[in-house]
């Protein structure tokens, strides 16, 4: 009888075990990336630094799993307030699908421009990124991780983008990124070429009614890894001036810290130059990201 019971227990354990096995060798939200190597969330929702896109794939998954990321970013500027939030899915550290919503509060400038006090420009960004080759950390030291990306942006304030002289409220950016953590120097180096016609990343629409359109822009990041959880660095991003409003290049100095394996906070001093003729938009950038 005792044997019968133990056999029954054995059968039950077999019936019950597949889920346990799956959890150990799991595919969904199982993590596995080294801390910080999923990067932060850029303002367009793709994984990267703060203002620059990197070749990294979001989420903590490795080549056999699926990961997810959620983020919130605020940028406090002298005349404007930026708020964005988004989600991203990383598949097998190969494909990244992301969505971000950007809300740009014009505050008093809204009155000056005749939009109304606190008029907020809104934009949706739907993006996809594909890792073509290489690994951010492993492999040959001088062979970077290389990714291509597409970011489709839909500005929700078409009347404003038309009024400022943009050709379209919707546009698509194409990116080619190379990123590498040079371990021997604890340096992260990243460069992105962006083919775009976006004005102020699309918040002021795309191209110009006068016919200015697509051009190549550059995004670069250089960062030093202080510890497993902390990294400091600088970023820059060139921008076109299709509308003749004196649009400036952007730069920031940032520090990112992985509070836990899942939560990364990024703080930066950002210089966004002139936005809609209001000069010297320099302020604080703060972003929080949760990833699995």
């Amino acid at each position: 009888m005792a044997r019968l019971l133990s056999f029954t227990a054995f059968i039950l354990s077999i019936v019950a075990s597949p889920s346990n096995v799956a959890a150990k060798d799991g595919d969904f939200l199982d993590g596995g990336k080294l801390v910080l190597t999923n990067a932060a969330s850029s303002i367009e929702g793709a994984s990267g630094g703060g203002i620059a896109t990197w070749a990294t794939i979001s989420g903590l998954e490795t080549d056999r799993g699926i990961g997810v990321t959620g983020h919130v970013t605020v940028i406090e500027l002298p005349d404007y307030g930026w708020q964005s939030h988004g989600v991203a899915i990383g598949i097998a550290n190969r494909v990244e699908l992301s969505y971000a919503r950007q809300n740009f509060d014009t505050r008093d400038v809204g009155t000056a421009l005749g939009l109304g006090q606190g008029y907020t420009l809104n934009q949706d960004v739907f993006a996809a990124k594909l890792r073509l080759a290489g690994d951010l950390v492993y492999g040959e030291p001088l062979v970077p991780q290389i990714s291509v990306g597409v970011q489709h942006k839909r500005n929700l304030d078409g009347a404003v983008t038309t009024a400022v002289g943009a050709d379209s409220p919707n546009g698509t950016d194409f990116t080619l990124s190379a990123s590498k953590l040079i371990l021997s120097r604890s340096l992260l180096v990243s460069a992105t070429a962006r083919y775009t016609e976006a004005n102020q990343t699309g918040l002021l629409g795309f191209g110009s009614a006068a016919g200015k359109g697509y051009d190549f822009q550059f995004e670069g990041s250089l960062a030093y890894q202080l510890s497993r959880r902390a990294i400091i660095g600088a970023e820059m991003r060139t921008k076109p001036d299709n509308l003749g409003l004196g649009e400036d290049n952007w730069m920031d100095l940032f520090a990112a810290f992985a509070v836990t394996d899942n939560v990364t906070v990024t703080a930066a001093y950002a210089d966004l130059g002139s936005i809609a003729t209001f000069e010297n938009q320099r302020g604080a950038f703060l972003s929080a990201q949760i990833a699995f």
């Binding site: 492999g139 030291p141 371990l183 021997s184 604890s186």
Partner: peptide, 26 residues
């Protein structure tokens, strides 16, 4: 990394050592 941290190997030196090992991943 934890073992090196416990022996107080400076982080930049840890990374220099990992740089030797990283290409072996393949």
């Amino acid at each position: 990394q934890k073992a090196m941290r416990e022996e107080r190997v400076p982080f930049a030196v840890q990374n220099r050592f990992l740089a030797k090992l990283a290409p072996m991943s393949k």
